[in-house]
């Protein structure tokens, strides 16, 4: 069944890339991490998901990555129904996503080139194309001259650029960023966010989970605020003031 068929059956608008309908996620102990969340994100949007620790941001990312399954409700991403997707189809689904983490999650025993090339090898791109694609993407994130460097020998900002290059080299439809500036100083954070904005301008849907209000307020993008697992606000050109979710 192709994406269009799935989309028609689930009656999701063509321009909507991520749909969460009344999604809840409960762990075995304590209150639910997400409670009746409904979200509609269109293709090409730039969305911040903000909230304090424990608000459900990380759970939301894990649900979108299909690392977790929802306890109830429906999640549909690019036509994939994440509640029903078979285990064997998950890799194919994830190849449509680029993921960037706060702690970069690079393979420390490999150099910059090998880290980025890994994403291409996973989708079995021929070796010659890998060399070309990796060079192009490293130039794009400003690391053209560092492809041979060990990732442990470059700065935090550069490591996050490597992570971005790895996330983007397969030309994903969606870029998921989980606290991408969490380990960076303000100046480098701004550079990384400008880079992510440029990626968004080229057509990639970007979702950034963060609690960095300076970044959110600087960008003036759509801001969805979570508080104790519930969406408390969803503003088109929003701001984030962490006192709001007290």
């Amino acid at each position: 069944m192709d994406t269009r068929t799935r989309r028609r059956k689930s009656r999701i608008p063509e321009d909507e890339i991520i749909t969460l309908e009344n999604v809840s996620k409960a762990y075995s102990k304590g209150a639910p991490a997400l409670n009746g969340v409904t979200l509609h994100i269109k293709k090409g949007e730039f969305v911040f998901i903000v909230g304090k620790s424990g608000s459900g941001k990380s759970t939301l990312i894990k649900l979108l990555l299909r690392e977790l399954t929802a306890s109830s409700g429906n999640i549909n991403v690019m036509g994939y129904n994440l509640n029903r997707i078979r285990h064997s189809r998950i890799p194919k689904y994830r190849r449509n996503l680029g993921v960037v983490f706060q702690d970069f999650r690079l393979l420390e025993d490999r150099n910059v080139y090998e880290n980025v090339a890994l994403a291409q090898r996973v989708v079995q791109v021929p070796a010659r194309e890998i060399r070309r694609n990796v060079s192009v993407i490293l130039e794009r994130v400003g690391l053209g001259g560092k492809y041979k460097s060990k990732v442990t020998h470059i700065s935090g900002g550069e490591q996050q650029r490597v992570a971005l290059a790895r996330a983007l080299v397969n030309k994903p439809s969606i870029l998921l960023c989980d606290e991408p500036t969490g380990n960076l100083d303000p100046e480098i954070s701004a550079e990384i966010m400008n880079l992510i904005e440029k990626i968004n301008e080229s057509g990639t849907t970007v979702i950034v989970v963060t609690h960095d209000k300076a970044i959110v307020n600087m960008m003036e993008k759509r801001v969805i605020t979570l508080q104790k697992g519930v969406v408390v606000s969803d503003e088109e050109h929003g701001t984030y003031n962490d006192e709001d979710d007290e």
Partner: peptide, 16 residues
């Protein structure tokens, strides 16, 4: 553990 997680996140199949 970390290496396997990274590979899974970027869409590697179980075989890969």
């Amino acid at each position: 553990k970390e290496e396997i997680n990274i590979m899974k996140y970027i869409g590697a199949t179980d075989f890969f």
